[in-house]
């Protein structure tokens, strides 16, 4: 469970705005209408060379297996890190690199 998958282009030109897709397997149990204990991710944070450029704050209305499409403007070859943080503090990460020629 909670195996993140990401899709990034391998390369980009300087200043290009790239599309990023992320998916993580997670039940996202709110326990609002079920007896199961709450089991929810709190945030998805996307970083480019260590700088946060996009965040999603999860609340009760997010589907199971959260999927996101968002963008980044890349100026130079960049290391990307995607961090999902559970409400209990546990984290799940995925990494990627976009080469700027």
């Amino acid at each position: 469970m909670s195996r993140p998958r990401i899709r990034l282009p391998d390369s980009a030109s300087p200043g290009e705005i790239i599309e990023i897709r992320t998916l993580i397997d997670h039940p996202m149990i709110t326990s609002l209408s079920s007896p199961q204990p709450r089991d929810m991710l709190a945030t998805l944070e996307a970083r480019m060379n260590g700088e946060t450029f996009f965040v999603y704050d999860f609340d009760n209305g997010t589907s199971a297996n959260p999927y996101h499409v968002f963008f980044a403007r890349v100026e130079e070859t960049s290391d990307f890190e995607f961090v999902w943080t559970h409400e209990n503090g546990e984290t799940f990460t995925a990494q990627g690199r976009v080469t700027v020629a």
Partner: peptide
């Protein structure tokens, strides 16, 4: 509350999709 997208200039576009 469903959720919130937070952007920065480095996001490049104020555009996002989720489910």
């Amino acid at each position: 509350q469903i959720g919130a997208f937070r952007f920065t200039p480095a996001s490049g576009r104020a555009e996002a999709t989720t489910r």
